[in-house]
């Protein structure tokens, strides 16, 4: 087991290193954005002196590397700083928004992951059948349309024509759990349609890839039923690639929601990011980006660890 501990620790260390590099890239990237918040807030009429004074007040006159180090040091102490636009603590802003985004991602994941895995397993079981082709065509077309298009189509049919779901996913903390789920069904469905294809096709491919192995032939020659062969004999050995693709898609559910949140006016992190960019509210943009990066890294780390654990050779050493 100590080997596994070592591997996990190694991955964790690499994850932290990645996060550091990402923080640097985020800072530099934001630095390159055109525009200036002081100018933006004070408007065209402000004199150069007032703008300069305001910049000093915000600490924007310091050289970039000093600002980066100050930002990093504060971050390590859990202080994201204050929003330049409205002076509120960023951690406060993030808190609600992040939970909302995670909530939406969770609802989408609960629908999409089991659906994708089931479809993938069934497609592998009935490979090259009509069912297999139909599933492939449907998932591929849903992934091929832009997200906003899928979103508007869903709104058109489910909100406008049928009226079963609200087209605006306006949620707040006072709402009951059920009500919240109900309100974010449409964005969750949109996300599901976007991520299912990838996960389903990887599941199918990973399983089919194993069907030529001698142990699958052995299972067939033991007279086992095809469903059992796929689920008991192929699936456990296909877990590593499936876990990885699921993790990437879960990360996308958190990170890739920007457009979907805007379309459904959902008060999540994506909305916050878009608003902050348009306001040149740099510290908020940085904080959001960092949260997104952290999600990616954490989920991929988790996938790494889980795929290690899914390998019996590592779990049960000689």
């Amino acid at each position: 087991m100590s080997d596994i501990g070592k591997m996990v620790a190694q991955r964790l260390g690499l994850g932290l290193l990645t996060l550091f590099v990402v923080s640097l890239i985020i800072f530099l990237g934001v630095e390159l954005l055109p525009g200036d918040i002081a100018q933006e807030i004070l408007g065209q009429a402000a004199t150069e002196e007032t703008v300069a004074a305001f910049r000093r007040e915000l600490g924007l006159n310091l050289p970039p590397h000093e600002r980066y180090i100050a930002w990093l040091v504060n971050l390590l102490q859990g202080d994201f700083g204050k929003s330049l636009a409205n002076k509120r603590e960023i951690s406060e802003l993030l808190d609600v928004r992040l939970w909302n985004t995670l909530f939406l991602a969770a609802v989408a994941a609960v629908i999409s992951v089991p659906l994708a895995l089931t479809l993938g397993i069934l497609a592998a079981l009935y490979r090259n059948s009509i069912f297999d082709r139909a599933v492939n065509i449907m998932t591929l077309s849903s992934i091929s349309f832009p997200e906003f298009f899928v979103a508007y189509i869903l709104i058109l049919f489910l909100a406008v024509n049928l009226g079963v779901f609200p087209s605006i996913s306006n949620i707040s903390e006072e709402l009951s759990f059920g009500e919240r789920v109900y309100r974010c069904i449409l964005p969750a469905l949109t996300l599901t349609l976007v991520v299912v294809a990838h996960m389903m096709r990887m599941t199918r491919a990973a399983i089919i890839n194993l069907l030529a192995s001698p142990y699958i032939e052995m299972a067939r020659l033991k007279g086992l039923k095809p469903g059992r062969i796929i689920v008991k004999h192929a699936l456990p050995n296909a877990l590593a690639p499936i876990i990885n693709v699921v993790a990437i898609n879960l990360a996308y559910l958190v990170v890739g929601v920007v457009i979907v949140e805007v379309v459904f006016v959902y008060p999540g992190l994506g909305q916050l990011l878009v608003d902050s960019v348009s306001k040149r509210d740099i510290p908020v943009v940085q904080a959001c980006s960092l949260v997104f990066a952290m999600t990616y890294i954490l989920l991929n780390l988790l996938a790494d660890v889980l795929s290690i654990l899914s390998n019996p050779r590592l779990l049960h050493p000689r």
Binding site: S213, P214, Y215, M218, H233
Partner: peptide, 15 residues
Amino acid sequence: AYVAQSAAAAFNPAH
């Protein structure tokens, strides 16, 4: 019943 050439490959590594 069947006994395969390479037992190492014909046993499922996961069970």
